[in-house]
Design a binder for these strands. Structure first.
Lengths: 241, 241
DNA sequence: CAACAAGCTGCGGGTTTACGCAAGACGGCG
DNA sequence: CGCCGTCTTGCGTAAACCCGCAGCTTGTTG
């Protein structure tokens, strides 16, 4: 009497998930599969799916995008994210879109069979949130401020990553030019862009703005999918004049 | 009488490869597996492997890095790259390291079983190069100049992506400041950074330098692994004063 | 309420970027 | 050889960027 929707790129992983669901949830009688985010959204709508397992990184339409629209239509949907990576960019992306009180989970693909099955039961049957330990760590840092980044810092990081000028950022965020630059300084500080820049020889200097983006990338604060989303939002904003 | 080494992150894909090798190469009597680049290099050395199937994107040590050191030790090794992506960054990275006359292959994970098996036989038995059609396209563009990027353009792209200043680039590449800036202009041109910048309203302007990097990322000219490698090279250069 | 921290803003100035203009340098080609 | 295209370099300028300094607005705390 339970239906589960699997949204996952890779056929191997898809069939693995299928088996795992069958094994972990005997009360589940139908399993549907989608091979990308677009199809996933459509199937979720058609079947009014209440239980979804979703990959984050998919070529066609990213898991976060798909989850967002699904949750917009029915916020009580339970979604288990099953991902290869625990990049801060993904973690931040997910926790930005989960509706209040929704049951969801975040399990890494490297987790054991047991963990996956346990998570499936906890979320779909017990309505509990299950977040992988490793991911949890990031989340703390990300929301709390310890060593992590404020939302406004993250925001401006994305803005310069997109290639906006200070002026454009100011306009977009409704700030003065100087405020934007303040935030930038703050960002450069946290990313440690200076130390690598200084190097007592004054010649080996970095372009702070570009360097900050790169460092963020190398630290997985940003990744392709985050950029992609940000770019889409930017275009939207540009169109809205 | 043939040994095959499989280097692949994901356990599912690893066992899939294992089966594929067994099915396609009955003359192969032993299959060894490594779960990341570091182990892969070690096993290749210990076993003097002549036939390797390698994933490109691996957490620990990237397939390109591993392949490079393996080929440095024994250039006649045959390597089949099996990857999820056909990013120009990967294609360029691979073709940069393949030794003269070496037999290698590049097959996408989305290819059919048949294609994979055929590629295995062609490369390991017939010593032929097998490059996936989709990848091939990129390679042409990348080496030929049609619409693609010159090496020097790509080089400077990487440099600004790393966050170097014009001056630093000039020093590193042995050019004058102005020449560096010339190449940048050229790059901006090809990346079409202007059109999105202009937009008749003079306010919606982009920071060309940062924008170029982002556009390159979105077009898969750059990706994480390319950045990682470039960063390592940069550090090396910095240490060498 | 006073005191204080945190964030926004304007001003000013030193540095870096982006780029037009023009003078060489180098290589191919008729 | 002279012509031409491509690449390099210097000069000069307008704009953008980085940032110290100082005045203001907040929200918080004793």
């Amino acid at each position: 009497m339970m239906k589960v929707l699997i949204v996952e790129d890779d056929p191997l992983h898809r069939s693995y998930l299928h088996e795992a669901v069958n094994a972990a949830l005997p009360e589940c009688d139908t399993v549907i599969e989608a091979e990308n985010g677009t199809v996933g959204e459509k199937l979720a709508r058609d079947h009014k799916s209440a239980h979804i397992v979703m990959d984050l990184q998919m070529a066609n339409r990213n898991g976060i995008e798909a989850a967002r629209t699904i949750w917009k239509e029915r916020p009580e949907t339970r979604i288990l994210f099953w991902s290869n990576y625990s990049d801060e960019a993904y973690v931040r992306g997910v926790s930005r879109i989960v509706p209040d009180g929704a049951a969801y989970g975040y399990v890494l693909k490297s987790a054991s069979d047991e963990r996956l099955k346990l998570a499936l039961r906890s979320i779909f049957i017990e309505s509990q949130c299950v977040i992988d330990r490793e991911v949890r760590g990031l989340q703390q840092k990300s929301l709390g401020q310890t060593n992590g980044f404020t939302d406004s810092e993250y925001e401006i990081l994305v803005d310069i990553a997109l290639g906006l000028t200070d002026r454009a950022i100011a306009k977009r965020r409704g700030l003065s030019l100087r405020s934007v630059q303040n935030r930038l300084q703050q960002l450069y500080d946290k990313l440690d862009v200076y130390q690598s820049a200084g190097d007592d020889h004054e010649d080996g200097r970095f372009n702070l703005r570009a360097r900050a983006v790169t460092v963020a990338f190398l630290r997985k604060l940003l990744n392709y999918s985050a950029l992609e989303r940000a770019e889409a939002e930017l275009q939207e904003w540009l169109d809205g004049k």
